[in-house]
């Protein structure tokens, strides 16, 4: 494992291209952030406006789900190369998380 770091100096064109790609990606992140803020605002506003709980709860849970997907796939790059196993285990974790929550809100004595 001593020889696993090769220093690869990119050509000027390659470097400029990568840099531009990253800058584009960063603009995408800004847009993601804006969406997150917007979703948060909707959630808080709905609760403050005092709609029926049966309307609000599913919607704010959905909004939270979307935010989490944005975080995972954009900020944490889970769709990127080499994330196959990562995504597999995160989804397994979410599955176990889901059944745990489901069990404890349905089959405990009240």
């Amino acid at each position: 494992m001593a020889h696993d770091t090769h220093i690869h100096v990119r050509s000027k064109a390659e470097f400029e291209y990568a840099k531009k790609k990253r800058a584009d990606e960063m603009r995408g992140h800004l847009a993601t952030f804006a969406i997150m803020i917007f979703l948060t605002l909707i959630a808080f506003t709905m609760v403050a406006a005092g709609f029926s709980a049966y309307l609000i709860v599913p919607i704010i849970l959905l909004l939270a789900g979307i935010q989490v997907i944005l975080q995972l796939y954009y900020f944490m790059h889970m769709s990127g190369k080499g994330h196959g196993m990562v995504a597999f285990f995160m989804f397994c974790g979410m599955f176990v998380a889901f059944i745990t929550v489901l069990a404890l809100v349905t089959i405990v004595w009240w």
Binding site: V86, M90, C92, G93, V96, A97, T100, V101, A103
Partner: peptide
């Protein structure tokens, strides 16, 4: 570290469920 985050997901799920 990602695997640890998967485990943390379950940890927090247990806390939320409780």
């Amino acid at each position: 570290f990602w695997l640890l985050l998967a485990a943390e997901t379950v940890t927090f799920a247990s806390l939320f469920a409780t």
